[in-house]
Structures are given as structure tokens and as C-alpha cells.
């Protein structure tokens, strides 16, 4: 595994926290579950190119693109919102 597969997810997480602090909306449990579920679907839809051998697309499930930065960004936004409470 190369660093290039991990760094974008970390950066997405940090950016998510930054923008999550600007949310002015009460996140319920249902909303959090909805966001994470949609993020997983979106990650499959917008997954990275398979030639880069991502963690999921290359090693675990070859042929399937899976975008980790999208999920970590959503998690970051949720955490950022919780931090700003």
C-alpha cells in the first residue's frame, strides 16, 4: 500500500472537520445514518480509477472503485459539527 492511497483520505477528513464546524443544523441519529449510507453509495458510484490500485478497488475487490475520501469527508463533517456544538 502506498502513502498516496491514505493521504487524500486524511486530507478529506481534515477538510470535512473544517467545513463541518460551519454547519448550523441539529444532526439527528437518523440524519447521520442517512448521510453515511448515501456516502457509501456515492463512494461506489464515484470510486477512484481502478488502475491506481486503491485499498478496496485493487486489493480487496479488484474491479470495484471505492472512494474513501468521500466517506472520510462525510465523517469529518459530522465530527466537525459535533465539535462545534
Amino acid at each position: 500500500m502506498m502513502l498516496g492511497e491514505i493521504t487524500p483520505s486524511l486530507i478529506a477528513f481534515i477538510l470535512g472537520i473544517i467545513f463541518g464546524t460551519q454547519l448550523n443544523y441539529k444532526l439527528t441519529k437518523g440524519m447521520i445514518i442517512l448521510l453515511i449510507s448515501f456516502s457509501i453509495v456515492a463512494s461506489l458510484l464515484f470510486g477512484v480509477f481502478t488502475f491506481t490500485y486503491s485499498i478496496y478497488g485493487g486489493y480487496i475487490a479488484p474491479g470495484i472503485g471505492f472512494s474513501m475520501p468521500l466517506i472520510t469527508a462525510t465523517i469529518g463533517i459530522i465530527i466537525g459539527k459535533l465539535l462545534k456544538r
Binding site: 493521504t7 454547519l23 440524519m31 475520501p69
Partner: peptide
């Protein structure tokens, strides 16, 4: 609201994907 939040996530995904695109 979920659509707007997911758009933000999507935007972040686009910018962090620049190492491959």
C-alpha cells in the same frame, strides 16, 4: 440538508482526487 452536506463531501472528494486526475 443531506443533499447539501453530501455535495460538500463530493467537493472534498474531487479536490483530494487530484493525485490521480
Amino acid at each position: 440538508i443531506p443533499a447539501a452536506i453530501l455535495l460538500i463531501s463530493y467537493g472534498i472528494m474531487i479536490v483530494t482526487g487530484s493525485s490521480t486526475s
